[in-house]
Amino acid sequence: MQDFQKNQQVQLSDGKYYLYINTITMDGHNYHFLSPKDEDSFIIGEIVHDNDKKLFKIIQDRETIARIQNYYLSHPDALLID
């Protein structure tokens, strides 16, 4: 089951709404791209389940993002949503 659906919106506990944009699967991880509706930025994260809570663990290190970037360049079909 996918964590998100196309055009799905989520509200995170920071109070902001994000629009799900896409997912790249790499090394067994599903890295989701969320974007605030009115901002041109993305946050990348993974879904983590903590008991009954569904948490969005944000990727914050450049290395992982760089790996995602490079992975896409070598796997142009890595995006879940075309």
Binding site: Q5, N7, V10, Q11, S13, D14, L19, G45, F56
Partner: peptide, 26 residues
Amino acid sequence: IMYEIIKDIKEEELPPEEREEIRKIS
């Protein structure tokens, strides 16, 4: 750093006009 997903709105849950807008933005 983890945020809890406290709410999600599926596309089909939106009214048609908002659905179209979200599609465009997305």
